[in-house]
C-alpha cells in the first residue's frame, strides 16, 4: 500500500538534545493507525523511541500528541484520515518534555486537582440512591465523557502564555459538577472559576473544542460558568 513518512520531534534527556527524525514505514493496511505506526518504528527501526499508550481504543487518554497540526489521540487516528502520507508528530505542547513524545503531565493534573473535582453534596447520603431525574441526568451528559488526555490544554494559546490558567479541561470539570443536580457547592466552584486564572482568561479561540477527541465543548462550559458567576453577582 505504499509508504508513510513520519517526522517525529524527539528529545533525548541524557544528551539534552532536541531534534527531528524521519522514518519511512510501510503502510500495512487500510485502517492502520498512527499508534500502530509508532509501534512499527519502536519494534523494527529504533527502540529508543518513547511514547505513552494503554487502551488503544480512545478511552484512557494516554496517547495524545500533536499530529499534522492538531492534537489528537494516536490510537484512533487512522493514516487514511490524515489524507497524506507525510505525517509530522510532536509531543503535547505547553508541557515539559521528558523524552520524545512523553511529557510531564503534572501541571495539567495540578490544575485538575485545584477544581475540587469531586461531588460535594450538602447532606449525608440517604439510604438509597440520590434521586436524579432523567432530565437532570441529561444535563451532565455533555460533560462527563472527558478522558483527561490534555489535547485541549495543549492546543490552547492561553495555557502557553499564562502558566496558572486552569485551562479548558479543568474548567469543563468545574462545569461537570455545576451541572450535577446532586452537587451543592456551586458557590465554591464559581469562586474557583472566578479567580484571575479562571474563566476570564479564556480568549475564545475555540482550539479546545476543535481538538477534543471526545467531541466535548469546553467553550460552552466556560460560557455556562461565566453566566453562573454573573448571575450570582446580579442577585442581592
Amino acid at each position: 500500500m505504499g509508504k508513510i513518512t513520519l517526522d517525529i520531534e524527539r528529545y533525548d534527556p541524557d544528551k539534552k538534545a532536541q531534534f527531528f527524525q524521519s522514518f519511512q514505514i510501510p503502510w500495512e493496511k487500510r485502517d492502520m493507525t498512527v499508534l500502530e505506526g509508532l509501534f512499527y518504528i519502536q519494534e523494527n527501526m529504533d527502540d529508543s523511541l518513547s511514547f505513552r499508550t494503554s487502551c488503544r481504543s480512545a478511552v484512557c487518554g494516554s496517547c495524545a500528541m500533536h499530529i499534522n497540526g492538531q492534537h489528537r489521540l494516536a490510537c484512533n487516528t487512522l493514516f487514511s484520515v490524515l489524507k497524506t502520507n507525510k505525517v509530522t508528530i510532536r509531543p503535547l505542547a505547553h508541557l515539559p518534555v521528558q523524552k520524545d513524545l512523553c511529557v510531564d503531565m503534572s501541571p495539567f493534573w495540578e490544575k485538575y486537582e485545584k477544581t475540587m473535582p469531586y461531588l460535594m453534596p450538602g447532606s449525608p447520603p440517604p439510604e438509597e440512591e440520590r434521586i436524579q431525574s432523567e432530565g437532570q441526568r441529561a444535563e451532565i451528559d455533555v460533560v462527563i465523557d472527558c478522558i483527561q488526555c490534555a489535547c485541549c490544554y495543549s492546543s490552547c494559546p492561553v495555557t502557553l502564555t499564562s502558566k496558572d490558567y486552569l485551562g479548558p479541561a479543568a474548567l469543563l470539570k468545574i462545569d461537570r459538577f455545576l451541572k450535577d443536580s446532586r452537587d451543592e457547592a456551586k458557590g465554591k466552584r464559581l469562586e474557583t472559576a472566578d479567580s484571575p486564572f479562571g474563566v476570564w482568561r479564556c480568549h475564545n479561540v475555540y482550539n479546545c473544542q476543535r481538538s477534543c477527541p471526545k467531541k466535548l465543548d469546553p467553550p460552552r462550559s466556560i460560557v455556562n460558568i461565566k453566566r453562573g458567576i454573573l448571575g450570582k453577582e446580579l442577585r442581592p
Binding site: L119, E129, R130, E134, D180, R182
Partner: peptide, 8 residues
Amino acid sequence: HWGCPFSR
C-alpha cells in the same frame, strides 16, 4: 453517593 453519573 460519590457522584457516579449512573443512567436513570
